[in-house]
Structures are given as structure tokens and as C-alpha cells.
């Protein structure tokens, strides 16, 4: 899988509106790292270091981060249909970004505000869930839906108030998710929260297995359930908020990739989490490369990941009916597979 990732990275560097040959790429990297003096196309350095590499690094970070967060949430909440925006982080970050765009703030500030609102949304969800009577887990899920809806309503209001000539299209495009505006500063902005979220999850991934059995069993096997769950929620939230703050809302990656990983390595999270990290990176890089090369204008990632996710599910389960553009994509999980139903008359 690592080899496949390297191949995809090399392909992603080479392919684009301005093709960079592998030889030029090697020469450029060699000149940088080993002070050699190879001659190559003068534009290669700019394309490589200012455009493609930041975008590829960001794609790897976001793809692996969202998949890792998705697998974590799915284990924690014992629900294979859960995705990283379960606790409202995506809509919170979306609201923050829309607010930043409305006030025409500098790009970095938009990301910072989006990140802060993503965290705020999850904090509010946690507050609601913690004060819910009965099952706390259900409280978190319902709280996440409520807070997500609240911020979604906020985004709708901002869109209503936004200038339809420039701000509204910018907000709409941002919400659909894209790495088009990726720049080196984005990588520096998200790498710390991303790694701060991913490293503890990777180190503690065995405990996700136990939490996926339910609180009573996890506790009986020595897990401090509340504390451990809170650590995982904080880590997955850091990752999701950081990802959404620079790339917009890229759906499906966090939902589908953990399932594909389980198909390859089984359900043990010791293997699922590392596999999700690598597969998520490969998946988003592939989707992003297609998004920037398939047409003269870039296609937002949110659209492509949804289309690709349907074909993934088709591969996962024979006899699946998919209908792109269908009204209902009702998803039912059964024994490790996703079944997607189109409308009944399909």
C-alpha cells in the first residue's frame, strides 16, 4: 500500500495542466537536496514547490486524517454509518469559513476561524450530550445532529446575506470542498493539529476495539471509558476541524475508506487505522488529481468523492443498486458491507 501511495504521489506530481516529467522532477529534487547542477525546465521548481507539492501534502494529510477520524468515530459509537462530521465539526467549520468569506477576511484567517468554529461546534455537542438524560452516546449523536443543523442554518443565512456576484459563489464552492487554493502556509497551518490528533489515535488504536463492544464490556476489561472516549473524540475533532478549515467539506472519505480498509485487513483496529491512513491518502490524491485534470475548470472534491464512493460501494457489494442523482441514498450496514438503495422504482 505504501508503494501504491508513492506511485500515486509521483503520478500526481507529474500529471496536470502543466506536465512535469519524472526526469525534471528528479533533477529538481536532486538540485535541492544534494546541490547538484542539473538543467531542466525553468518552470518546474515553481510548479513543484509552490503548487503541486503543497497540494499533494495537503491531500495526503486530509485524506488520511479524515479516514482515521472516521474509523475512530465508527468504533467509538459502535456504528459503521458514522462519519467524521458526526459531532457537527464540519458544519461548524463551514459556518466559520462562510463568516470569514462574508467579511472578506484574508485567506489564513478564514482557515483559523473555520478551525475555531469546528472546535466550538463539537464543544457545544459535547455540552448537549453530557447534559442529556439516559444514554450519553445517543446524546452525543443527537447533539451532533442538532448542532450541525444549527450551524447549517447559520450557513444558509450567511448565503442569503452574501453578495450573489462574488461572495455567494465563493461560499458555495468552498462548501463543496477543494484543494485548488492549497498553498504551503496551509500545510504549516494544519500539520500540527492533524498530527496531534492522529498520533494518539494510532498509538491507542487497540482501545477502539474495546470501546466498540460497549461501555460495560470495555470497563470490565479495565478501560476508563469516559476518559478514553473523550481523548479519542478530541483527537478526531482536531483532525476533522483542521481538514475542513483548509479544504472545505469533503464528504464520504471518512465514511467509506474505513469500510474498504476493513474489507482488506479485517475489523481489528490495530490494522484498520493504519490501513485507513494510507488508503485515505491514496483515495484523496487520486480524486484530487482527477478533479484538477478531467476538465478545464476544477471540479469540487465533494462532488467527485460522492461519485467515487458510490462506485466503491458497487465494488464492495455485488447486487448493489446505485442511482447517481437519486433522491434517496439510504444506507444500511450489514456484516461489513454497505448496501446503497436507489429509489424503489430504479
Amino acid at each position: 500500500m505504501i508503494v501504491l501511495l508513492l506511485i500515486v504521489v509521483l503520478a500526481a506530481i507529474s500529471i496536470g495542466q502543466y506536465a512535469v516529467t519524472p526526469f525534471d522532477m528528479i533533477k529538481s529534487i536532486s538540485n535541492r537536496l544534494f546541490d547538484t547542477a542539473f538543467q531542466y525546465d525553468v518552470n518546474t521548481d515553481t510548479i513543484l514547490y509552490r503548487v503541486r507539492l503543497p497540494r499533494i501534502l495537503l491531500g495526503i494529510l486530509i485524506g488520511s486524517g479524515l479516514s482515521c477520524a472516521g474509523a475512530t468515530y465508527q468504533g467509538l459509537f459502535q456504528n459503521p454509518m458514522v462519519s467524521p462530521d458526526l459531532l457537527g465539526a464540519s458544519w461548524g467549520a463551514g459556518f466559520g469559513a462562510a463568516l470569514g468569506l462574508l467579511f472578506a477576511l484574508p485567506y489564513v484567517w478564514i482557515s483559523v476561524i473555520a478551525f475555531a468554529f469546528g472546535l466550538l461546534a463539537v464543544y457545544l455537542t459535547y455540552f448537549v450530550g453530557a447534559h442529556c438524560k439516559g444514554s450519553k452516546k445517543l446524546g452525543f449523536i443527537l447533539g451532533g445532529i442538532m448542532i450541525g443543523s444549527l450551524f447549517s442554518a447559520g450557513v444558509s443565512y450567511i448565503k442569503l446575506a452574501a453578495d450573489p456576484m462574488d461572495t455567494l459563489p465563493a461560499i458555495t464552492y468552498w462548501l463543496m470542498g477543494s484543494l485548488a487554493s492549497a498553498r504551503p502556509s496551509d500545510v504549516y497551518l494544519v500539520i500540527v493539529p492533524m498530527l496531534a490528533g492522529m498520533i494518539p489515535i494510532v498509538l491507542m488504536r487497540w482501545r477502539i476495539n474495546l470501546l466498540s463492544l460497549g461501555d460495560a464490556e470495555a470497563r470490565s476489561m479495565g478501560i476508563q471509558v469516559k476518559k478514553t472516549r473523550l481523548i479519542f473524540i478530541c483527537c478526531a475533532t482536531l483532525i476533522t476541524s483542521a481538514a475542513v478549515s483548509v479544504s472545505g467539506m469533503i464528504g464520504w472519505v471518512g465514511l467509506v475508506i474505513p469500510h474498504l480498509s476493513r474489507m482488506l485487513v479485517g475489523s481489528d483496529n490495530r490494522h484498520v487505522i493504519p490501513m485507513s491512513l494510507v488508503m485515505g491518502a491514496i483515495y484523496l490524491l487520486l480524486v484530487d488529481t482527477v478533479a484538477r485534470t478531467i476538465a478545464t475548470i476544477e471540479i469540487p472534491l465533494g462532488i467527485l468523492t460522492a461519485v467515487f464512493a458510490l462506485s466503491d460501494c458497487d465494488i464492495q457489494q455485488s447486487g448493489v443498486w446505485t442511482e447517481v442523482g437519486g433522491i434517496v441514498v439510504g444506507s444500511l450496514y450489514e456484516r461489513g458491507s454497505i448496501w446503497l438503495y436507489g429509489p424503489k422504482n430504479s
Partner: peptide
């Protein structure tokens, strides 16, 4: 909720 093997399930006991 997930398809653990019998060995995976029993292995959780060593936690």
C-alpha cells in the same frame, strides 16, 4: 458491531 474474529474477541481479554 464489527466482524471480529474469535481470536480478536478473546484477545481483548488481555487488555
Amino acid at each position: 458491531a464489527y466482524n471480529y474474529t474469535v481470536q480478536d474477541m478473546v484477545l481483548m481479554g488481555v487488555t
